[in-house]
């Protein structure tokens, strides 16, 4: 068995092909979505995965929850091989998943009942389901909406309910597949803050897939995917120092980082990989002090 402080997720050489079938049921086209991807995540980390549409990041996410199985390579989630069918429900309980469209993942017509859905599936006793639901709803700050209909909630609130539904299953890891893509800025902030809180307070491992560069600056590690491969990996600072490379990959950088990079290009002595407004203004203040001497 693996040792403590081990990787909660261990993927080696993950390869996956989407097959298209013609009218006679024969394969007429295949599309490589994962191409020998390695993915190792330590328990308790906050990992962000970036990549443009069709880069394979959603496919990778679905592998972690065993919604898709690797065509080649192996994937262990908390020590369980995802291809081992007898471990399937254990894996899904261990690695929860939140999807893009909040409407399409809420099953029940009342908030609390939706949060109870996962534990019900796991066969948790009634009394404990209620305890879990309450704890989960409080953790995402949606307790006061427990009796509401999901249709009456904002996008950000619905996504928080979806997150609560996953937390109630007591997972060690949550995979979020573009959870903020359909939300307005307020909703995005709510969701990201909730996720960061869960990571810091509860120690839940987070794998966040997103298009929004601003959402990844707090991650422990950023993975960039392109054409089914992992092309960059490192801390946010390391990743965002490579502005031009990110642009080539059809990705942007946070605007502050871009401004810092532009100023550096114009000849100012500014360090690489600036991520926040404070970092930028401090660097600029030093530049100005230098000019005046």
């Amino acid at each position: 068995m693996r040792e403590k402080n081990r990787n909660i997720i261990e993927g080696q050489g993950l390869t996956y092909n989407y097959l298209h079938y013609d009218e006679e049921g024969k394969v007429d086209a295949s599309q490589l979505a994962l191409d020998h991807v390695d993915l190792n995540v330590e328990a308790g980390q906050f990992i962000a995965i970036l990549g443009h549409n069709g880069s394979g990041k959603s496919t990778l996410a679905k592998q972690i929850n065993a919604l898709l199985l690797p065509g080649e390579g192996t994937l262990y989630v908390d020590g369980n091989d995802t291809r081992d069918e007898s471990k399937l429900w254990e894996i899904r309980q261990c690695a929860g998943m939140v999807f893009q469209n909040p409407d399409n993942q809420i099953i029940a017509s009342v908030v609390e009942e939706d949060v109870g859905f996962g534990p019900e599936n796991m066969g948790v006793p009634t009394k404990e389901i209620w305890e879990r639901a309450e704890k989960a709803l409080r953790a995402v700050d949606m307790w006061k909406y427990r009796g509401s209909s999901p249709n009456r909630l904002s996008g950000g609130q619905k996504q928080r309910v979806a997150i609560a539904g996953v937390i109630a299953m007591k997972p060690k890891c949550i995979v979020l597949d573009e959870p903020t893509a359909m939300l307005d800025p307020g909703g995005r902030k709510e969701v990201i803050e909730t996720v960061r809180e869960l990571n810091r307070q509860e120690g839940i491992t987070v794998i966040l897939i997103t298009h929004y560069m601003e959402e990844v600056i707090h991650a422990d590690r950023v993975i960039v995917m392109d054409s089914a491969k992992v092309v960059m990996t490192g801390t946010p600072r390391e990743i965002f120092s490579q502005v031009e490379k990110l642009r080539d990959l059809r990705l942007g950088v946070p605007q502050v980082t871009e401004l810092a990079w532009e100023l550096k290009k114009a000849g100012l002595p500014i360090p690489e990989g600036i991520l926040t407004i404070e970092e930028l203004t401090q660097a600029l203040d030093r530049v100005r002090a230098g000019c005046r001497e």
Binding site: R92, M97, N104, Q105, G116, N121
Partner: peptide, 27 residues
């Protein structure tokens, strides 16, 4: 259809596998 597809996936991800072995939140 898209919704149905998404929903089926979300239900599976949350451990739904039919009525067998399910408990009830509100029996």
């Amino acid at each position: 259809f898209r919704r149905a597809n998404d929903l089926a996936m979300a239900m599976e991800a949350r451990g739904y596998h039919g009525g067998e072995g399910r408990t009830k939140m509100k029996p």
